[in-house]
Design a protein around this nucleic acid. Structure first.
Lengths: 354, 354
DNA sequence: AAAATTTGTGCAAACGGTTGCACAAATATT
DNA sequence: AATATTTGTGCAACCGTTTGCACAAATTTT
């Protein structure tokens, strides 16, 4: 966090406000006012300054600005196991883009192997960002307090800290679980199974809860749960093998996410020689782009990334305008995407590529 | 780039050096010296200060540091069409992690729809970073000059600007093309084809060049090139269909990258009912994680991401120590990964999952 | 024991902006 | 035409550090 020893400068001579001031025969204050909204400055001089500034590529030094205004444009993004699920990088890319368009700058704080988000959070807080977005991770409640003391708002994206009054934007995982349950039951299946993702994540928990509750409501009681697993292809692959080594094989499987589902599917079709959906239906969650590929054509629940980004930006805007805006959890519903990995009940079959 | 209007602060009262100074009965200078290496300070007072600082969570204000030292820890990362290829997010995640471990902070500058890297580069330069890494994109030569004037080193990752003396770290795409060519010829194929990626990218160009050159060297002259395409699943899918609508069907296809190859493969197997590799061999480039899945088991050339990151960090270290270090292009070789999408010559068959 | 050196600390001037206050010029009000 | 108001600009203090310089105290050398 400490500035690097700066042996390296090839005559880095930065243009500063004083230069413009001298050149245009005005004071430094006036230069500053040309770049600050809501200040008294004549349109003429402002135009003159901005034009000249543009011509020589002057921009006010952001460090000095931060120092004087006690503000900055930085939004920290804490990311952990981002490479696991192709969905997170996408979220990161979109988020940072949306932030930039709103005038913020995204600074990345990856959680290294063997670290926890709590370890890197202080590094983010050192920049005193107005917001830190925690992507696909959670932090301790102490850490949330620490952030709050510094005036930084923590926003959890895609996960949340149960019971803690924090900002969060999540997909309606429970609704997704219910939708899948409904769909599988409608397909005529009665022996269902769930392949779990990473334990103790709110995503995994809520998807299972929604799924199992809806099953019960619909009178389906034969619901097996394959607990040990994480959100990965391999985990899905192995879980499917374990599951089908048992005597009571399920007719349909709901997997904690698409990656897991694709793994399970490949195990069933490859290693076990089963047909999907003829022998067994498989459904996932997220609707990652691979799920639309003809090779798998996975039925899934669409993760409403677009809207979640939008909601996050709205949240940021709102908090920014009203510091006393109370923590809320925004839950965004997605929608069922039926493809050909689940048995068609009425011949419905969606089959888009890539 | 301008600090946000700061209506939002819930009593953000930051701990500053003066507080420590008063509390410990020393001067602000002394506090500063406890955090700055190579300065005269007695071990006792230093320990006392650091201990107290840690207990109350004090960290020197990075903006003030940047201002006084004329240095900062920020490295800009310009990213464009990152979501297209799962390989880029991975690179981004690893890069930012490596940077953080080296004491830098990665600031993201995504190129929005309809923009060019040239448009966002100035925003990055405003922070006067010692380095800006341009990921999977190129910029105009004017822009490189502009960056150099400000003292910022541009490092191109995965692409490069031909003819321009800039820093770049790339995979040995030509070698990869040659390796694939060799492999396909060794498999006994004589009618080959190439499905191109995004035109005018150095990656696409170099892969094709290596491939076609090696084919010629090996005496194989029947090499068709399907030009129109980009780096996407759909593009590969369509290209394969076009290619097989012609009378002279190839025996083996080399695709510009794995995503394209997976698309092509799905078209061949799904829509055309062909068997891979029995009817046609398919090879890709990058070795993205999906390529290892049993469902596709794609022969490919491994993108040496790990080493490329390492090389990039070495470059950064070196430039940082020697400002006059001259621009170089680091080209990192990968290696062939033979799986079962290409006809086995001697029964070799690699088949790892996940 | 005096002189020379080393060591640790404090003072004050930067770094590059922003902004409250003062004030002259321009404009509006009587 | 005199007064009141508005508008635009400059001065100077401040944001939170770092660091050259000065200097007293501690240590080493003669």
């Amino acid at each position: 966090m400490k500035p690097r020893s700066n042996k390296s400068k090839r005559t880095r001579k930065r243009i500063v406000a004083k230069h413009l001031a001298d050149e245009l025969g005005v004071s430094i204050s006036t230069i500053s006012r040309a770049f600050t909204p809501d200040t008294r400055i004549s349109p003429k001089t402002k135009a003159k300054i901005l034009e000249y500034a543009a011509s020589i590529g002057y921009q006010p030094n952001p460090y000095a600005q931060s120092l004087t205004t006690q503000n900055n444009t930085i939004v920290g993004i804490v990311v952990s196991d981002i490479s696991n699920n192709p969905f997170y990088p996408e979220a990161l890319a979109r988020l940072s883009d949306a932030l930039r368009q709103a005038g913020y700058n995204a600074m990345l704080f990856p959680v290294s192997e063997g670290q926890t988000p709590d370890d890197v959070l202080p590094q983010a807080l050192a920049f005193e960002p107005e917001f830190v977005i925690v992507l696909a991770a959670t932090v301790s409640s102490q850490a949330t307090v620490f952030a709050a003391e510094g005036g930084t708002n923590l926003i959890f994206f895609s996960r949340y800290v149960p019971g803690s009054p924090t900002f969060s934007v999540t997909c309606d995982n429970a609704d997704g679980g219910r939708a899948i349950a409904e769909h599988l039951v409608e397909c005529g299946h009665t022996r269902l199974a769930y392949i779990a993702g990473t334990p103790k994540t709110s995503t995994n928990r809520d998807r299972w809860t929604g799924f199992s509750e809806r099953c019960t409501e619909l009178g389906v009681t034969d619901v097996h749960k394959e607990e040990t697993g994480i959100f990965s292809y391999d985990s899905g692959y192995q879980a499917a093998l374990r599951m089908f080594a048992r005597s009571a094989r399920p007719e349909a499987i709901f997997c904690a996410n698409d990656i897991v589902a694709l793994g399970a599917m490949d195990a069933l079709r490859g290693e076990l020689g089963l047909k999907v959906p003829d022998d067994v239906s498989v459904a996932g969650f997220d609707n990652i782009f691979m799920s639309g590929w003809p090779s798998h054509s996975l039925t899934t629940y669409n993760y409403p990334l677009e809207q979640m980004i939008a909601q996050t930006m709205m949240l940021i805007e709102r908090i920014s305008n009203d510091p006393d805006y109370d923590p809320i959890s925004v839950v965004v519903p997605g929608h069922l995407v039926v493809r050909s990995s689940t048995r068609a009940r009425n011949g419905q079959d969606e089959h888009p590529a890539g």
